[in-house]
Amino acid sequence: MERREAQWGFLFISPWIIGLAVFYAFPIVASLLLTFFDASLTGAERNFTFIGLDNWIRFFNDPMAWKALGVTVRFTLLTLPVGIFVPLAVALVLNSKALVAPGLFRVLWFLPYVIPFVAGIIGWLGVIGQNGPLNTLIELFGVQDAPLWTNDPGLIYPALVLMGIWGIGSAIVVYLSGLGGVPTELYEAAMVDGAGWWASLRHITLPMITPVIFYNLILGVAGSLQYFLVPQVLNGGNGNPEGSTLFFNIYLFKSFFTYQDPSYGATLAWVLFLITLGLSLILFGTQKRWVYYAGGDR
């Protein structure tokens, strides 16, 4: 009986097992091995020399790599809170009993999520552009020289966050489903105890949806560390203004392709992988302290 169930089990998960082997296990091992070689994969002569840990040592001594890592970390510190709390706030408002036609607004707030991100970039670039509506508004308030958002190292990160804001739809949906799962009796009980809006948010809503926050946090960390597409589309990954958009993944990609240094690119990819993995493990470690699972065991 158990053996038959096990057979069924393996049968059902077999598509994923095949995918794991073909698209993860082999490529990962291949790229890990690549980090120990000096490999030129292009050109007439394809050399392939074992160089031990040279690539890894080079990473520790590469100022550009560390600079790029710094860029990524700084951006993450800005985009991660936005990516977690803005959709949460929106979901809370959309979940409010006082809102008329909540269904319509839910649809509207998810809608931009289906718009291709390139279109989102072009759209938001228009809004924050030199003569766009935002700067016109700023000038109405008496500011003489309205800023050039994408050309100012101090403003480029808010601009990038804005360009990605249309992507919050999925997080809103996940939050909404989490909020829908909070039992109404809890609110009624709280009301009996005289709790106001803030108290029920603080003591019921937030604790009850910590699993969803945790879920978005984990995805957010991985996503921001691998941030790549928006700067790549925005300026071809040239790092401007003043190197502020030279994200780690951009530098990695450039090393891989543009500088034709696949083994060093693979090393950087592994560095990023290890950082992501480490951070995720730490976050999973803190989970017990603040994430509340209603069902007890997950």
Binding site: A25, F26, V29, A30, L34, L41, R46
Partner: peptide
């Protein structure tokens, strides 16, 4: 087995 296959993959990479 997977290590061997990975090496083969690598060779495939190297040989284009």
């Amino acid at each position: 087995l997977s290590a061997i296959t990975a090496v083969m993959m690598l060779i495939a990479v190297a040989c284009g």
